[in-house]
Design a protein around this nucleic acid. Sequence first.
DNA 1: CTAGTATCTATAGTCACTATAGAGTCAAGA
DNA 2: TCTTGACTCTATAGTGACTATAGATACTAG
Lengths: 160, 160
Amino acid sequence: MKIGGLAKKTGCKVVTIRYYEKEGLLPEPERTEGNYRLYGKNDLERLQFIMHCRKHGLKPVEIKKLLAFKDHPQGDCTWVSELISAHIKNIDAQIDSLEHLKQHLNQLRQCCAGGHSGDRCGIMHSLNSLGQCCASCARCSDLSATPQCIHSTGPGRGGA
Amino acid sequence: MKIGGLAKKTGCKVVTIRYYEKEGLLPEPERTEGNYRLYGKNDLERLQFIMHCRKHGLKPVEIKKLLAFKDHPQGDCTWVSELISAHIKNIDAQIDSLEHLKQHLNQLRQCCAGGHSGDRCGIMHSLNSLGQCCASCARCSDLSATPQCIHSTGPGRGGA
DNA sequence: CTAGTATCTATAGTCACTATAGAGTCAAGA
DNA sequence: TCTTGACTCTATAGTGACTATAGATACTAG
């Protein structure tokens, strides 16, 4: 199976497959005489494992560790469930942070329903001064806190 | 006020201030004889506006529009509240996506409590096959769906 | 033989910064 | 005056997880 076939079977883009190879997640495959990559059942399964991990939000570096464990399954697997637990904690924190943000955005939206000029817009004023919306919130009044993880449109990098 | 003073007053890093200038969010300030940047009250306010927007998860390109509107507040501000509304929708989708992910991670965690070798670890098996954890979920069984927005540690880019 | 598709490598771009290198400026103390 | 150290300057590269592009080569169908 050539790279296009593997891409079609898994739904992973061709470039991404090559990227995973470069990053060491996928092994360097055999080549045809014309230097085309050749994949087999093992590669397919490995890529699916990787994609499944990615769907769970695991990062390539974590996936690498899991793959190494998969290749050499000696020793205790307790760290795996710990990894997942840590990950859940991380997600919880993200959700919490987004909920908080949403609350403030809702308050912000209520500052103006539109129909004014810029200097009479309650939202603009609120953005100016941290005024009605955030002054009472310790978490929000610290401007130096790092911003949220926001992407252009839709959730994640392109919608779920 | 030099750049360090502005940084201290706002909690924004010096490099970030220069970055905002390069991106056109902050105007090029006056300079001292020794070529140091000199800031005034206007710059302070503008930077605070920017930081407040960032805290609300607005992206530089959106902030640029808001700043332009702030500079020339003619016309109707309705688009501002629409921008915030769209943003809230976006956040909602992200939260939804993360909740979904969390649910699956919880299921995944239940596949193994540790204490096994790798080839007997339920989590590893589940990652292999989409097995018990995800097979019944249409949303999850599509491997090609784009992954979530996950950062290394803590929420956002470094904690809330 | 030709046209079109698939693949190859290498490199640069994305975003919102962050980090580094190497040089210049300035204020305070010896 | 000299030195020390803090601050600032510019320019460039790095981050993560890909994505996009350019230009070359390989294969397939007609």
